[in-house]
Amino acid sequence: MGLEDTLNEVEVAYFMSEKYQHRGYTKKAVTALVNWCFQVSDVPYLILTIDCTNTPSCKLADNCGFELFEKRTSIGHIQPNMGSDSYYYYRIYRKG
């Protein structure tokens, strides 16, 4: 979790070893991190940026309560750790 340099918004990021995928660990970790962030800060929302080709990560984002905000195509800058030039931009808002 941290400030996404090109968007200037607080972003959650996750990576899981293939050995431990599909066991629910990432969902638990992301949910705990989101809850913690909203408890200790006053940010109104958090974001995820996911490569359009990463379908499993998009499914996880949905399962963690993030909402797809829009599909974006970078102009002159490719998002770090992404293979394609387009990505999905997700948000989750503070409750209440």
Rank of each mutant, 00 (worst) to 15 (best):
Y45I: 03
K27D: 01
I50D: 00
E9I: 01
Q39G: 01
T6M: 13
K28L: 09
K59C: 10
T31Q: 15
P44C: 00
Y25C: 02
S41R: 06
D42W: 06
A29M: 10
V12S: 06
T31R: 11
E18R: 13
D5K: 13
P44W: 01
C37Y: 00
K19T: 14
S57H: 05
N54L: 06
D5P: 02
C52K: 12
C37A: 13
Y14P: 06
C58Y: 02
V12A: 01
W36K: 09
V10N: 04
C37M: 09
E4F: 07
Y14F: 14
D5I: 11
P44M: 00
E18M: 11
D62S: 06
E4G: 00
K27Y: 04
I47D: 04
V34H: 02
V43T: 10
Y25T: 07
Q39W: 04
F15M: 12
C52W: 05
A29W: 00
C52Q: 12
N63S: 15
L33E: 05
A32R: 12
E18K: 14
N35C: 04
E18I: 09
Y45R: 09
L48F: 04
L46I: 04
Q21G: 10
T55C: 00
T26A: 12
L60E: 02
P56E: 07
N35E: 14
L48V: 05
L46W: 00
K28H: 09
